[in-house]
Nucleic acid binder design. Structure first.
Ligand code: ZN
Ligand code: ZN
Ligand code: ZN
Ligand code: ZN
Lengths: 136, 136
DNA sequence: TCTTGACTTTGAAGTTACTTCAAGGTTGAT
DNA sequence: ATCAACCTTGAAGTAACTTCAAAGTCAAGA
C-alpha cells in the first residue's frame, strides 16, 4: 500500500500527473483511506508505469487508453496493437521530416549573416522580410 | 486599404489569427473604420507576413516579438538576430534527436510482433509491461 | 503532548497558440 | 428588400499537464 507520492516515485512521474490521469479516466479511481488519501497497490503502480512508458513513446492520452483496453483483452488478436504502433511511428517520422526541413531553412538563414553588421544590412532579416520568401 | 479577410489572404493566415496577434500585442492595434472594422495597409500586411514566416520557422510568439523589436532598430548590430536563429536551430536539432530516439524505440517494439498472435502473447505489450523497460 | 514539516485533499486557473462559437451589426449586389 | 458574405466582441475549447490556494493529516522529535 503506497501513498500517491510513493506511487509517483516508483512510477517516475509527479503526483499531480497521477491525479490528472485519474480525472480524465485514463486510470480508475484509486482506493481511498478514511482520511481520503489515495492508496495504491503494486498492480496499480505497474499500470501507471505502463501509461508513462507509452506517453514517453509519444502516444496521446487517447491512444494510451486504446493500448490499455487492448492489454485488458488477452484473447483478442494483437493486430490492433501493431496498428497503433505503426501509426505512431509514422507520425513521429513525419514530424522528424518537418523539423529537418525547418532546420535546413534555419541553417540557410544563418549563412546569410556573419553577425558583424548593423541590422539594416543583416541578411537574415532581409530574407525574413522578403516577399519572395516562398519561392526559396 | 484592406479588410481583415483580405489581409489574411495576402499574408496567408486566417483572420482569427490576425485578431489573436493583435490581442497578445504581437501586432499593433489596427486602424478602425467608422463601422469598427479593422483596416490594413500594405506595410501592415508585410509585417504580418514577416510574423507568419518566423512562426513557420518554429519561433515562439515571444521570439517573434524579439525579432520584430530587432528589425525595428536598423542601426543596432545584428548579433541579437543571429543568436535567436542559433538558439532556435539548436532547439529544433534537439527535438529531432529526441524524436529519432523515439522512432528507434518504436521500430524495436514493432520487431517484437508479427501481428498474428493473441494479445496475451504479443511481444509489444509484453515489452511495454516490462518493469525492466528502462534498461533497454 | 506539542510542534514542526512533509504530506494529502479539492477546485480553479495558468500554460501555448490558436480556433470555434454565439449573437449581433455592416456591406454590396441583385 | 433581401441575401450572402463580411465584420465585431467575449468566452470557451483544444492537449496534457502544472501550479496555486486553502485546509486537513500524519509522523517524528523534544
Ligand atoms: Zn550580417
Ligand atoms: Zn545579421
Ligand atoms: Zn505478435
Ligand atoms: Zn502483437
Amino acid at each position: 500500500m503506497f501513498t500517491i507520492a510513493q506511487a509517483a516515485r516508483r512510477a517516475g512521474c509527479p503526483a499531480s500527473t497521477i491525479r490528472y490521469y485519474e480525472r480524465v479516466r485514463l486510470l480508475p479511481s484509486a482506493r481511498r483511506g478514511t482520511n481520503d488519501y489515495r492508496y495504491y497497490e503494486v498492480a496499480d503502480i505497474e499500470r501507471l508505469a505502463f501509461v508513462n512508458r507509452a506517453r514517453q513513446l509519444g502516444f496521446s492520452i487517447d491512444a494510451v487508453a486504446d493500448l490499455l483496453r487492448l492489454a485488458d483483452h488477452p484473447h483478442s488478436p494483437c493486430d490492433g496493437v501493431d496498428t497503433l504502433i505503426a501509426t505512431q511511428l509514422h507520425s513521429v517520422e513525419k514530424r522528424i521530416r518537418q523539423l529537418q526541413t525547418l532546420a535546413a531553412r534555419l541553417r540557410q538563414l544563418q549563412s546569410a549573416c556573419d553577425g558583424e553588421h548593423p541590422i539594416r544590412e543583416c541578411g537574415i532579416l532581409a530574407a525574413l522580410s522578403d516577399t519572395r520568401w516562398n519561392e526559396a
